[in-house]
Structures are given as C-alpha cells and as structure tokens.
Design a protein around this nucleic acid. Structure first.
Length: 298
DNA sequence: CCGGACTCCTGGTTGC
DNA sequence: TGCAACCAGGAGTCCG
C-alpha cells in the first residue's frame, strides 16, 4: 500500500513535469474518484481547466499541486491502490483509469497525467489552501490541515511527538497509524518499525519507556529512509509509475506478510494477528508487551 | 478522549 | 470448470 516513501516517489516524479505546466483538458471517467471534491465533477473540471501548477507538495500521504495565482490546489490521495502515471498524450490508457489530465509544459510539451485506481479508495479534489498551524507561512489544503508532519520533515518535532505519545491513552501501533500524531506511516512500515524496535503492537504508549520510544522513532526513520532510498534509485525520471498494490519495496521486509517464516533475528516464526481490522505481523518472542516502567501521569 | 464498528471498493485468490 | 465467498486496508464518520 502506498505509504510515505511510495507517495514521495510519486510527488518527486511528478514535479519536473507538472511544475509550470498548464492544464488543457480534464476528463473524469469515474466520479467516485472525486469523493474528496466538494461539488460535482463539472466543477472539478471547470476549476482545473486552464490552471497552471506550481511545484507539487506533500504532507504525509497527501500530495497537492498548488494552482498558480490562486489559493487553491489539486489534491491527490492514492488510497490503497492509486497510481499516477505520466504518459505521452497518445499513449494507451490503463483499463482502470479514473481521471485524465492533459497538460502542456513549457519545455517538455504536451503530456498526460492518468489517475489509475483499482479500488477507488484514492481520490482527487480541488481544495482551498490555508496557513499551516505550526508554520503559518506555509500553505496547506484545508482537508490536509489536520495531518501531522512526517518523521522525515525538517520541522517534525521529536520532543513534541514523544510527549504526545506519553500523554495519550492508547497503544503503540494505533499511535503510529494516527496521522494526526505522526504522518506517512501505514500498516507495512508500522509493522517493520515495531519489529526493528522490538516493540509489541499493542504495548500501551504510557508504559513505553522514553528510551524505547526514542528507539522506535529512530527505527521508523530508518525504515522510511531505506525505502525512500530504494524508491529513489528504481525510479525513472521521465515517468511516474508506482504500483502501490504489489508492495513496492517488499524485498526488504522483515515482518510484514511473512507469517510462518522465521524471524530474521531469532528464527522463531513470525505470527499474524488481526488488529484494527488489519493484519499485524510480529515476532512473538522478540516483541513482547513489557509491563515494567509504568509511570503515573503527571 | 478513546476505541470499536462500519463504510467506501474491486481484482485476484481461494474454496467448494 | 464455474462461481461465490473472501481478502487487502487508508481514512473518515458515528456512536457508546
């Protein structure tokens, strides 16, 4: 599933083609792919046609393309299975293409951006830009304003995150997946970071020692950073082509999807349990709930 | 504030 | 071989 690294690959790949490009034509093949757009598809088409894009931005798993000269942007969320394909104008269309945007770039000429999405959990929308809460000089779509910064963001505040983690009455995987606390982490990288930090997914955050919480944050960064590096090298600058559904970086996973296989650290089998309506993959030996270090609130 | 249940959705896989 | 049931989960909403 597309998480921070996959989404960033899409953003970075879109940047050279979209920045400064003008929208010639928009075609909405699947209105449900505009779930996040307030208003009918015709409104989406009207507001986008003729627009010129500024450089694509990202917060967590949301991408947006600011519209030059306006306080609005095109939002892109890939959901579970979304892809953004940069194509020549006359290239064949994927069967699952939901939205087509034809662009002209001042240097690269005519291009086509196809939004392909099997499950239609992803969507596009035009949204107004508002000042970011923690940095009012930075504009962010109103629908994205509640999303926290990701751990690779230079303005991510470690102390603030660790304090929030201690204060919250929840468990650790739930917290990692809470995009208002820390963004960009999905089910795959959550399981990978928890495995690396040797933390059980259902460990109460309040009973997580400060040291262990710091280790966990460091492992989140390590996992995301590694995937970003791999994505960056396998990516063709001319065409954005991310297959979110197939597990883009699956060759480097230690826990996710490996139930029944030996833990790469201790050799005992990785187990899978259902938690929050999704699979949690972990080593029942390396990742045990720790009941020590319980502190009172305060 | 918190968590659980539910919703959206369909191609590929599994099971009978 | 055919078809139905099942499975994957990001994010939002609602309710207790």
């Amino acid at each position: 599933m597309p998480e921070l690294p996959e989404v960033e690959v899409v953003r970075a790949g879109l940047a050279p083609a979209a920045t400064g490009a003008r929208v010639d034509r928009v075609e909405v093949l699947e209105p449900r792919s505009l779930r996040r757009h307030e208003g009918p598809p015709e409104d989406f088409v009207a507001r986008l046609t003729g627009a010129t894009f500024a450089e694509p931005q990202r917060r967590g798993k949301f991408i947006w393309l600011p519209i030059a000269g306006e306080d609005s942007a095109l939002i892109v969320h890939l959901g579970m299975s979304g892809q953004v394909l940069l194509r020549d104008r006359d290239a064949a269309r994927d069967r699952l293409t939901r939205i087509v945007i034809e662009l002209t770039h001042p240097e690269h000429g005519p291009l086509r951006v196809d939004f392909v999405d099997q499950r239609i959990f992803g969507s596009m929308a035009i949204d107004d830009l508002v000042p970011s809460v923690d940095n009012p000089g930075q504009l962010i779509p109103s629908q994205v304003a509640h999303i926290a910064r990701d751990p690779m963001d230079p303005l991510f505040d470690d102390h603030r995150f660790l304090a929030a983690l201690r204060k919250k009455d929840t468990t650790v995987k739930r917290a990692l997946l809470d995009q208002t606390l820390v963004s960009g982490i999905g089910n795959i990288y959550a399981d990978e970071a928890l495995w690396a930090a040797r933390v059980h997914y259902d460990q109460p955050t309040r009973s997580l020692s400060r040291a262990r919480a710091r280790v966990l944050l460091a492992e989140v960064r390590a996992v995301l950073g590694k995937a970003l590096a791999e994505g960056g090298t396998s990516f063709d600058a001319q065409y954005v082509n991310v297959n979110g559904a197939s597990g883009y970086f699956s060759h480097s996973l230690n826990a996710y999807g490996r139930q029944g296989e030996p833990c790469p650290r201790c050799g005992r089998p990785i187990v899978r349990e259902v938690f929050m309506n999704r699979g949690s993959h972990f080593c029942a030996y390396c990742q045990r709930i720790r009941t020590t270090a319980v502190r009172s609130r305060g």
